[in-house]
């Protein structure tokens, strides 16, 4: 197991550190850690969740904007936006590769032997539609008689919420099962479709539908940490593209919107030293041609 997998597991266990529910504890964690957002997508109604979901929180802030203003609370989601923007400005989409529990889950599902399918590039823009429409505009603008909006992405789309919170809570709480209807059927269908897609394609949710990934991706080309491409050293062997968990052709677009900075291309794939990194314009040492793939210190 490589270093990134260990970090992903540690991040998943840290984000989901509440394990007392099956032993008589509260159904979901209610401690102060929930004031903090997770850097990855992780439903805060998951019985194990110790942190808040940034996308769920943002929707809630936008959905309750008008009632909050009416009682004098200026809660515009700056806390969450500032948190996500700081991460994005530092490392772009790196949390998707290293810290997101749902990303880990997708990576594991793709290891199931099956015919593998590419994802049409035309679908990549969907995640921006979900971010703009389902996370920002619809929650803020479509209001009920009391001035409240809905958390559209959580309610109608998010397969992470259905998997991490819906299924466990419905299994543990009979009272919730009695409330299940067409909405749950729709969400279960979306989850089933994504699960099947995750087996045959590399990270389809991250590439097409994750609003958090969409937000981080806006910083990929301008973040403090960026990957660099040396065209003179590249022989177009396409090893980077084959090994990339997001199917990015690095030689076509370094710091592509779907690059999650897992660093596999730089450390494991490129034998020619064509991929390196820079921190705010200062180039790192990178790999020299002929060094061969990087030897992971945690892999024998």
């Amino acid at each position: 197991m490589n270093l990134r997998r260990w970090v992903q597991i540690a991040a998943t266990l840290t984000t989901n550190a509440w394990w007392l529910t099956p032993f008589g504890g509260p159904v979901i964690y209610g401690g102060r850690l929930k004031s903090f957002c997770s850097p990855g997508l992780n439903c805060y109604s998951c019985p194990a969740a110790a942190l808040s979901c940034p996308i769920g929180t943002l929707q809630f802030m936008f959905a309750s904007l008008r009632p909050s203003l009416e009682v004098g609370k200026v809660h515009l989601g700056l806390y969450v936006l500032g948190f996500l923007g700081t991460i994005g400005a530092l490392v772009g989409r790196m949390p998707c590769a290293w810290l997101c529990p749902f990303g880990l889950f997708q990576g594991l599902l793709y290891r199931i032997p099956s015919p593998k399918l590419a994802i049409p590039r035309q679908l990549y823009f969907l995640k921006y539609v979900f971010l703009a429409l389902f996370v920002v505009l619809l929650p803020a603008l479509v209001l009920d008689e009391f001035g409240y909006g809905q958390t559209w992405y959580c309610k109608y789309v998010c397969p992470a919420g259905t998997l991490e919170a819906g299924l466990p809570l419905l299994a543990m709480q009979p009272s919730l099962r009695s409330m299940a209807g067409w909405l749950l059927a729709g969400k279960l269908t979306i989850l089933a479709l994504f699960l099947a897609w995750m087996v045959v394609s590399k990270r389809p949710f991250c590439r097409t539908s994750c609003p958090l990934g969409a937000f981080y991706s806006l910083f990929n080309r301008i973040s403090v940490l960026r990957l660099t491409y040396d065209e003179d050293k590249c022989v177009r062997c396409k090893a980077c593209e084959r090994h990339c968990p997001m199917g990015v052709a690095f030689y076509e677009a370094a710091n592509h919107q779907n690059c999650i900075r897992c660093l596999r291309c730089m450390l494991h794939s490129c034998r020619y030293g064509a991929i390196g990194y820079e921190i705010a314009g200062v180039r790192g040492p990178g790999m020299a041609e002929g060094d061969g793939p990087y030897k992971d210190p945690l892999r024998p």
Binding site: L78, Y79, L183
Partner: peptide, 22 residues
């Protein structure tokens, strides 16, 4: 502006929308 308190209040209640019943 006190937003962490709002985040906390939202996150400690079961989100019925998230689980598909609300």
């Amino acid at each position: 502006l006190g937003e962490p308190e709002s985040v906390f209040e939202k996150a400690v209640a079961i989100c019925l929308s998230c689980i598909g019943v609300g």
